[in-house]
Design a protein around this nucleic acid. Structure first.
Lengths: 242, 242
DNA sequence: TCAGCGTACTGGTACGGTCCAGTACGTACC
DNA sequence: GGTACGTACTGGACCGTACCAGTACGCTGA
């Protein structure tokens, strides 16, 4: 490796990027990172500059330091899944379940006032309303009703809607959702829902109402009804300090 | 203020505590913190030591720096309420609802195998099983069944159990929960639950199963059944990066 | 074979210094 | 009155030095 020369990007930031790549691509969790003094010599920077870069990666959770022992690549911290924005497909894959989808209905309609408000679009603007049943592990898991603003996603209705809408939004529209607001509640299955989900009427459902945004722009408003016997949310809670 | 002398606690840590108190108690959000050079002179430490302390508070989110302008007390970042560990009382207060509690039953029993496992205690160890109805805004909101390990909380059953158990744990046992694992699911109300919650049988309930820890020790295992017409979870989701 | 000690490694603390780059304010000139 | 420039403040980058404190390993002696 060559020494770091002064440039528009500070040395400690360039070193941080080098160490990130090293940790991620070459070393892997648990492996030792070269010591501060070795890095200082190798890159011809001061030990303080190395400590600045390493410190930043420690704060990020990528590295961890042990006094007197060394610096190591940290095991990836578990992101609390409960606040993780994922499509149904991604969620089930993570739970180790094979995914299946049946499109029940797909219609273009003018947006109602409520839908318009939730999607931040004009009333009567055209939206795609998509009903699907989602299966996991070969059995019905959920029903979804997604509403998509066609002004922002022109031609969406002509695509294959049996797969992951998130993948579709990402690949064809560069609008993969990165943030969402979600409300969780409970309902009981009516006759139609019960039939589609292969349960009895009156069985409990977990209901998720979610509005998803890509770069601040609303791209999806979806309600999902999950069989409560097959789906639950695990979350870690922490107390507020002060 | 007096200079910082060498001692068992590093200077940068003591300065960090001083600055935390200063920011929290005296200055408040938006206020300017004395400059690095002023702090270095006042506490008779090097500017690098000041930068170390300030840098830590910047990483914590308490302070923010603006190049060329100064260091300021940051506005408190919103903690996503969905992952916030709070008692029923705290939760309802935050939602602006007056709280009421009716103790339905309180009995000391030997712990079953399942309860013992969840609370990390021996089977047959004595536990307090506490049933309560929780009201919010003058109407039934939830039913709770809490299980408390009396080995860790001796005499708990003799206390007033109509108030906040979290407050009680904090004040009398120094065991205020600081972390919890929670599972959210849905059920339908049976006849007893329906009567206690003033709803019809078969109505949907949001169910929370929570094990709470104080400093790593399990102190509470509680299941709560909430009326789904009155309670829902709001949560912000973000996409995982990578 | 085990324990203790010494050595060599590691990260942590602290300092003083210099220079760079951004921000804000005051003053002078047009 | 507005603009531009200079000055004085601010944080940021980087260096080299010295010493402290923790960890691990090897060697020696009992």
């Amino acid at each position: 490796m060559r020494p770091l020369r002064p440039g528009p990007v500070p040395k400690h930031r360039r070193l941080r990027e080098i160490l990130t790549a090293m940790a991620t691509d070459e070393l892997g969790p648990g492996a030792a990172v070269p010591s501060e003094r070795v890095l200082a010599e190798r890159f011809e920077v001061s030990r303080a500059t190395v400590r600045e870069a390493v410190g930043a990666l420690v704060n990020e959770g990528l590295l961890e330091r042990v006094h007197g022992k060394g610096t190591f690549v940290a095991a990836p911290a578990a992101v609390d899944a409960a606040l993780h924005l994922a499509s149904f497909t991604q969620d089930m894959i993570r739970r180790g379940l094979a995914v299946g989808t049946e499109v029940l209905a797909a219609e273009v309609e003018p947006a109602s006032a409520e839908r318009a408000q939730r999607l931040r679009i004009d009333v009567d603007a055209p939206v795609l309303v998509l009903w699907r049943r989602r299966d996991a592990g070969g059995q019905p898991m959920a029903i979804e009703r997604g509403v998509y603003p066609l002004g922002r996603l022109p031609g969406l209705e002509a695509h294959d809607l049996a797969g992951s809408i998130y993948d579709l939004l990402g690949q064809r529209y560069d609008a993969r959702p990165d943030r969402a607001e979600q409300v969780v509640s409970a309902e009981v299955a009516d006759n139609d829902q019960a039939r589609m989900l292969a349960i009895g009427p009156g069985e409990p459902l977990l209901v998720f109402a979610r509005t998803s945004f890509a770069r601040g722009v609303a791209v999806e408003d979806v309600v999902s009804w999950y069989r409560a016997d097959r789906y639950r949310i695990h979350m870690g809670l922490t107390a507020e300090r002060g």
